[in-house]
Design a protein around this nucleic acid. Sequence first.
DNA 1: TTGTACGCGTTATCAG
DNA 2: CTGATAACGCGTACAA
Lengths: 404, 404
Amino acid sequence: MSARRPPKLALPEATPSPAVRATAASVARTRPTIADVAAEAGVSKATVSRFFNHRERLLSPDIATRVEAAIAKLAYSPSPMAQALSHGRSRLIGLVVADITNPFSVAVLRGAEKVCQEAGYLVMLFNLGNERERERDAIAALASYQVDGFILNTQGQSEALGKNPTDTDILQGRPAVLVDRRHAALNADFVSLDNQSAMRAACDHLVEQGWRELLYITQPLEDVSSRQERASAFSRCIKVHAQAVRGQLLELGKAMKGAADGAPDGTLDAAIRALRERAGANGRGAIVAGNSVVTLRVAAAMARLGWRFGRELGFVGFDDPDWAPLIGPGLTMVSQPTDAIGQSAAQCLLERLGGLHGPARERLLPGRLVVRGSSAAATTRPATRSQKQLTPPEPPECAAPGGR
Amino acid sequence: MSARRPPKLALPEATPSPAVRATAASVARTRPTIADVAAEAGVSKATVSRFFNHRERLLSPDIATRVEAAIAKLAYSPSPMAQALSHGRSRLIGLVVADITNPFSVAVLRGAEKVCQEAGYLVMLFNLGNERERERDAIAALASYQVDGFILNTQGQSEALGKNPTDTDILQGRPAVLVDRRHAALNADFVSLDNQSAMRAACDHLVEQGWRELLYITQPLEDVSSRQERASAFSRCIKVHAQAVRGQLLELGKAMKGAADGAPDGTLDAAIRALRERAGANGRGAIVAGNSVVTLRVAAAMARLGWRFGRELGFVGFDDPDWAPLIGPGLTMVSQPTDAIGQSAAQCLLERLGGLHGPARERLLPGRLVVRGSSAAATTRPATRSQKQLTPPEPPECAAPGGR
DNA sequence: TTGTACGCGTTATCAG
DNA sequence: CTGATAACGCGTACAA
């Protein structure tokens, strides 16, 4: 509204405006256009356009250099907006994230963004803030900007999409890659941790170290495929080791939107206590946490109880945040190749954008078990440490350190 | 190249193509255009356009409803791309982040994105990955998409910008808001933590609790204004308390790009040891960490030494990550109002976009000191705990828990 | 109050 | 090999 270029007068044969602007462009308030370059080089717009797009088709070296010079002089670069309008591709990639607060999502985002940037794409970000109803809006908003493709890390399984018949079109026929969470109604490539194998590695390790009573703690399964897959993988592991270990699953309540969800804390504490009791006095109960959010809550619970990982209870968690080595004796973690996941997703998408057709692909990347103190052999020291603390000192009331 | 709409034939008076497409649009592969709506409603494109933009100007109720119906029927929404091209505004906001890995940046991003979305803007994200040379490219790339404004959280002070004369134009005259880090060459609004007061609160607290030998640890000051401000604020605090405490500053070496920067760890350990020796046997040495990255490294060092916060050394850090309560006795932290910072930045920008002129503004938000165990009174127990551990057991070599 | 025609910056088609 | 010219989808003076 302020520094907008004054509309050109519609004088039929006045001095051609582009040229005018080009020469007067010494103090140009606006980016040079292809017309400016054309005028500067004394050629037509089409020629300049060809210089960029159809370089293979010979344009006489003479003219080519003239155009090149003009481009350099004016520091011209094509407007992606106009290109999108005309040519149909925006060189934009829409990225929808369920919760930007989740370090996993950020790590993936990072990997994906890197690849996209290197390929000349820009990322448009939409954060759902854990409000899954907004998924439709997010995709629609992105689509309205003509994004060339989508990378989706969202909850929405069947619910949000698929009801409305027009939903099939929601992607506007543009390719999409799903990350970490499958999407029933969408046929798209899928990239994720190999949850099955990862869980297997975690459980095998615990069993091997002598932990015998396992508890898997997860956020609400809801429609989130990765949570479901890990949970069922856990069950399967328990079955495999049936003669040696027992297992149980705890699904945390939904976190109240932003609230400190106080009640669940109580149930979490109780569940942990119960685990220890089930395991008996030999200290062979261990927790498996479904992701870093759960890990955080479990660690807080342990602090409240005055317990220490690797002593009262064993522990393995999914994700490997920076701080995992610093909690207690260090937390044993299944490290996800987040960067690779993000990069892989972006590459998948780029391949599709490059014209690759065919059925939806699935790319499962292996996790890596990072062993630290929290899962150290349970059998070697129950008599020493655990027994000693069998009845742990009552935690100093609620004067817990975390004054949140 | 594949499913592109076939170019309309240039038949002078053939059946008007929009209408054709509208009726055949039952299986439309492309979004409806304003022409489709116009045809459907039996009015001109201009009328439909007016329906959106100049609602106040009377459009006969009759036609208004017809248009409305057509819009609803076709599920039409204007193309922001075309609008941007024509009208000059894209409803896009460019967000440049120095390092998306930094939780602080993410938290700010979150707050900003929320406000932007609510105001109908979409965020285009560009992550610098700590490569400051890319700042120019980032801004240029975003500008090429006609973003209406910028939110910048980048290192670049004078270096990257300001040399090239065209750099003044780099923002294309579009408003920008700087977050956390000032930018010498840019005149733009600035939103940040009130570093001066925050540091003051941190130091006062430590002094009050009896810590007497302070060490401020920061990432390389380089050109990052927030680091510089905190460092000088620290010096000032030391001066204020000169008769009671002594202070020193440690600037960590640049982290090797992605590497485990092994060497600096050694110097960090040495510095911490030296601090404790300076403080003497009364255990009154305390660390102040400039942000959560430093906190992480310090915590790792403490683990290597076998020391515990609040016992061998006191601690206060900037930023308040989730895991702060879980390290040792809980870490005392200066919590930044990250969400508010992000929101405030976005609001600043929206005001500018709304036409607000005037000189660059500066908005400093207060931090909040969250007291936990790591800074608990130093004077009450040096004789008990600290003395006992005066010569800490040599750490078990480099078999540190963190197998990174 | 509504319709017509043009421009925004590019690309693609079709003559030359 | 190069130059007009028509889209792309929309906003907006200008005319009706």
